[in-house]
Computed example of a mutant assay.
Amino acid sequence: MVIPFKKIILHRLNMRMIFPFSTSFGTMQEKDFFIIEAVDMDGNRGFGESVAFPIPWYTEETVKSNKDMMEDLLIPILRENPIEHPNDVFPLFGRLRGNNMAKAAIEGAVWDLYAKREGLTLAKALGGEKTEIDAGISIGIQPTIGDLLEEIEGFLEQGYKRIKLKIKPGHDVDMLRQVRATFPDTPIMADANSAYTLHDIELLKQLDDLDLMMIEQPLQHHDIIDHAKLQKEIKTPICLDESIHSLYDAQKAIELGSCKIINIKVGRVGGLSESVKIHDYCKANGIPVWCGGMLEAGVGRAHNIAITTLSNFVLPGDTAGSSRYWERDIIKPEVIVENGAINVPTAPGIGYEIDEEALEEFRIEKQEFDM
């Protein structure tokens, strides 16, 4: 049965994070993004969230480019092509190159709407099995090692099961050694966000003595060749993030031996449908996956929880509790971490209600498109 869309609504929000978040890219505290609302003829509402940043630090996409893509191209494609299932969306959008975050934002709203129409949780609609997921935490670059150690201690006391630390040249091996000396048994990974080159092999080899879970994306954001060379030289597992934009990328990276782990970010790969395909391929080839974060508000966080219920998400992801980032989130109840885990919601769709007052409070722009 064709999904009877009535309208698509773009809510542009601006939310201020509790603390600034620093990586090798830069520092941000204001989050400018879109909540996409898909409404059907029966009054059901599905929600997606855009994850592009205002500046093209992470990929070439920006908040502004997402807006242009959605209103000028993607929404008209959805209007002109009846769909019966969310899996129909990715091939339709595939006629346009790139712009995966814009595509994923709309596709996510369609997935949520579909699950609600079918009376399914989004997790079940995707094929998920888990009733809870393990939660990790990502910690940005801190002013001092003392500040960092204090941050880590606080999150471990909250039960988080994995610590991810951002690194960059000049803020890497010595810092990680101090952290490992203080927390000898804690699962720790390092995220480089493409800050190194093959000239840094000898430095990166020093990480092998620190028993890290992985080093994430040490080399160029588009590369799989040099990562294969590096993985042959170091024992620490390489996890690819920015290099993986599709199932095809994952297939080639695994074939070349570029990594031993893959980070799946729904926005980066173009949506939930492609995320499931990458998950399935990695599972068949013995490559564990985990769900990365993009400083999402509650809707994007809920989508991450749903995808993480698939069986090969065996490593704790970046999906922390809402209070890690926001004084007030836009969903009810907010995402809560208890003893290092998040209970998967059981209500249809994303399983959380939109906090309408919060949505209005943070909204700076609203556009409606009749379908």
Rank of each mutant, 00 (worst) to 15 (best):
S246I: 09
R117P: 01
T23S: 15
Q367C: 11
A109V: 08
A105T: 08
L240H: 10
G292M: 10
D209R: 14
L176P: 03
W326S: 05
R328G: 03
E37R: 12
L73F: 15
T23R: 09
I261R: 04
I133W: 04
R16A: 14
S24G: 07
K124C: 02
G46E: 08
R177N: 11
T59M: 09
L272P: 03
I201H: 05
I77M: 15
I188Y: 03
H222A: 12
G159D: 02
D185M: 09
D112P: 09
A105P: 07
D147R: 06
L230V: 05
R268D: 07
F21V: 08
I287S: 08
G351T: 02
K265M: 05
L295M: 13
Q178D: 13
G321V: 00
I55W: 14
G119S: 11
A250T: 11
L210H: 07
R324E: 06
D223C: 07
G271V: 02
K277C: 06
E356K: 15
L212F: 03
C291H: 14
S311E: 14
D134C: 11
Y248P: 00
S65A: 13
D147C: 05
K31W: 09
I163L: 01
E353I: 10
L156S: 01
D134N: 12
A284I: 02
G270F: 04
P288K: 11
L219A: 03
F369A: 05
E296L: 04
R12H: 12
I305K: 04
Y325G: 02
K366D: 04
I139P: 02
S243A: 15
Y58D: 05
Y196C: 01
P56K: 14
I137Q: 01
N44F: 15
D40F: 10
Y114G: 06
M28Q: 12
A125S: 10
V314N: 12
L203R: 13
V179Q: 07
I9H: 07
Y352P: 04
L149R: 12
I201C: 06
G271I: 00
E274C: 08
E71H: 11
E202A: 13
G170N: 11
